Simulated assay, not measured.
Amino acid sequence: MKTRRSKRYREAAKLLEPGKFYGIGEAIQVLGKMPKTRFDETVELSVHLGVDPKQGDQMVRGSLRLPHGSGKKVRIAVFARGSAAEAAKAAGADFVGFEDLIKKVSEGFTGFDVAIATPDAMQEVRKLGRVLGPRGLMPNPRTGTVTDDVAGAVAECRAGRVEFKMDKSANLHIVIGRRSFSEAALQENAAQAIDAVQKAKPAAAKGRFIESLVLSATMSPGVPLDLAALHRK
């Protein structure tokens, strides 16, 4: 069944040249010319990777700090006890606890965007894998969300740190800002995001790593990016 697109979407699609791949700066300019919605749309990069998602040694995940933030209010949950829990509260975490928070999450609560845990808390937090795993919320040392410095991790998330994780189809999505951001801010955030993905290439991955890269806003068509410069690196 063919998807029926809105008039706004069809008008936006007319700005794209068939078969053309755009540089990052040009893509952001094109996106900026597309008809806007009544809300401040999220801008994201969608990446398709040349890896086998069925192989555990080719999993791709990581985190980065966007120079200009993501424009999104991040809700943070911290699994910690004692002084670490107090530090998390002082740093502004939205939900802080241990046994009580673990019980709440085990019953289905996932009203947060990032989960942070101290190393000693992870023995119990790992048991929440069925709830946190599918949503990409499981704390992980590689993304800086398993740490004794929970206050620092909370501050990083507030300052614009975002996480990314490949799905079962070898795709990943990274929020790089809002349409209200300046072109320069979006370009710097996008460059940082692409660099972080490239650095996350698994040692077991062979051949071309990034297969395709698309820039889009919440309600816009995707703008395909030119990968030639990336593959020359």
Rank of each mutant, 00 (worst) to 15 (best):
S6D: 03
S6M: 07
K7G: 02
K7H: 06
R8V: 11
R8T: 02
R10Q: 15
A12K: 12
L15K: 15
P18Q: 09
P18W: 09
K20F: 04
G23H: 11
I24T: 06
G25K: 11
A27E: 10
Q29M: 05
V30H: 00
V30Q: 01
G32N: 07
K36R: 13
T37A: 04
F39H: 13
T42V: 15
V43Y: 02
V43R: 08
E44I: 14
L45G: 05
S46C: 10
V51K: 01
K54D: 08
Q58G: 04
M59T: 07
L66V: 12
L66S: 01
P67Y: 15
G69A: 07
S70W: 15
K72S: 06
K73M: 13
R75D: 14
F79G: 03
R81Y: 02
G82A: 11
A85Y: 04
E86W: 11
A91V: 13
A91R: 07
G92Q: 11
G92L: 13
D94F: 11
F95N: 15
F95Y: 12
V96M: 08
D100Q: 07
L101D: 00
S106Y: 03
E107D: 07
F109H: 15
G111N: 11
F112K: 13
D113C: 09
A115T: 14
I116Q: 02
A117V: 06
T118C: 03
T118K: 04
M122D: 12
Q123W: 10
E124I: 10
V125G: 00
K127R: 13
G133R: 03
G133I: 00
P134Y: 01
R135M: 13
R135P: 07
G136D: 01
M138E: 01
T143Y: 00
G144V: 05
G144H: 02
T145Q: 03
V146E: 00
A151H: 10
A153D: 12
R158T: 12
V162Y: 14
K165T: 00
M166E: 06
D167F: 09
N171A: 04
H173Q: 05
I176H: 02
R178H: 04
E183H: 12
Q187S: 14
E188F: 10
N189P: 09
A190H: 06
Q192T: 08
D195P: 02
V197F: 05
Q198D: 11
Q198Y: 11
K199H: 09
A200N: 07
K201S: 09
A203F: 11
A204Q: 06
K206M: 08
G207M: 03
G207R: 05
G207K: 06
F209G: 01
E211F: 07
E211I: 01
E211T: 12
E211D: 08
S212E: 07
L215G: 09
L215V: 08
L215I: 08
M219G: 04
P224Q: 09
A229D: 06
R232E: 10
K233R: 15
